[in-house]
């Protein structure tokens, strides 16, 4: 049995974009090992998400939506997910390596006596086994890992690593999953979500990131990076040096003790390229470095570089892009 369950994460009642990336990964495994692919949505918007994903090659899509599941709780969601894993006999469970996935699935793994691989960047089949690739030591090296036996294997995959699936196949059967979760049995629960100021995409999901380092000199100077990021529809990041100097909040930190990012374009402004920063952004498809110091280590990892003062280069870049975008 190599049946696969895809966990479609909902945010604000909508399926996150990682869902389609997980379907691609599921197709790869099912393509080689056989087995059916089922989907699961839990929480507010689950019923309509199940409907939306009807034409993506799923055999069945389970959904659970009621008052006790409206707000995220590890305990409530773990109960539903574990029930579906057990009832479908899923061998592989694919989830996003997101804040929710990272919180929820270790508990699910414990409930189904399974195994979990966190923060994977790839999943493929080799010698009849599904092998996940994941960074360790904050991306300074990678391992390929597989389960030793037939127990349920949860693979949490980071956003932006696998291309999204296209619609295909006949409509899935939609199955309402009854949940016996009641609000009074939940000991820890999310009350509300307070969005970060700025309304920019999250660093871990952004296609383009403009990041600033110690050379930003002051929090107010991040304005020039924000202008460039907003023009490109991107996110703003910062190095640890900038965060520790108080120029940017920790929520924006990219690196080993911050966010691990994987955008199409990463523009590093006034960032020297300390090893712990590189650990957080080195998998970016294209890296541009802007730095006054031609010997800055960031140039060894960058694809394109301009040796110059970021306070001159960044505004020029913004102006130039305004002309063509």
């Amino acid at each position: 049995m190599t049946d696969i369950l895809v966990f479609g994460e909902l945010r604000g009642g909508k399926a996150k974009k990682i869902t389609k990336e997980l379907i691609t990964a599921a197709d790869r495994i099912a393509g080689e090992l056989g087995g059916e692919i089922n989907g699961l949505f839990v929480g507010e918007g689950a019923a309509s998400a199940a409907e939306e994903f009807k034409g993506y090659g799923f055999k069945r899509i389970f959904y659970a939506e009621d008052d006790a599941l409206k707000n995220y709780s590890t305990e409530g969601y773990a109960k539903v997910v574990s029930d579906v894993i057990k009832s479908t006999g899923a061998r592989y469970v694919l989830a996003g390596a997101t804040a929710m996935g990272r919180d929820l699935f270790p508990r699910v793994a414990a409930r189904v006596d399974g195994v979990m691989f966190s923060d994977c960047v790839d999943l493929r089949v080799e010698d009849g086994r599904a092998i996940a690739k994941r960074p360790v030591y904050s991306g300074k090296v990678f391992i390929e890992i597989t389960s030793k036996d037939e127990r349920p294997t949860i693979v949490a995959i980071r956003p932006n690593n696998i291309p999204p699936a296209e619609p295909k196949g006949d409509g899935a059967e939609i199955v309402k999953q009854d949940s016996d979760v009641t609000i009074d049995t939940i000991r820890a629960i999310a009350k509300e979500i307070v969005p970060l100021a700025g309304g920019r995409p999250d660093l871990t999901e952004a296609d383009i990131i403009v990041s600033g380092g110690r050379a930003m000199k002051d929090a107010s100077n991040f304005k020039i990076l924000e202008e460039l990021a907003d023009l490109l529809g991107g996110a703003v990041g910062a190095s640890r040096a900038a965060v520790d100097s108080g120029y940017a909040p920790h929520a924006l930190q990219v690196g080993q003790t911050g966010k691990i990012v994987n955008p199409k374009l990463y523009i590093a402004c006034g960032i020297s390229g300390a090893i712990q920063h590189l650990a957080g952004m080195r998998t970016s498809k294209v890296i541009v470095a802007i730095n006054k110091d031609p010997n800055a280590p960031i140039f060894e990892k960058a694809h394109y570089g301009i040796v110059g003062d970021l306070f001159e280069v960044v505004p020029l870049l913004t102006e130039e892009l305004k002309k063509i975008l």
Binding site: I143, S147, L316
Partner: peptide, 29 residues
């Protein structure tokens, strides 16, 4: 006994950085 590390992989070697230069900074940009 739940998981098995199949192999350890080093980071892929990074390519050469193309330094964009010009007489005027604006042209480099």
């Amino acid at each position: 006994g739940r998981a098995e590390i199949v192999r350890w992989l080093p980071l892929p070697k990074s390519g050469e950085c193309k330094i964009v230069e010009a007489e005027e900074l604006q042209d480099a940009v």
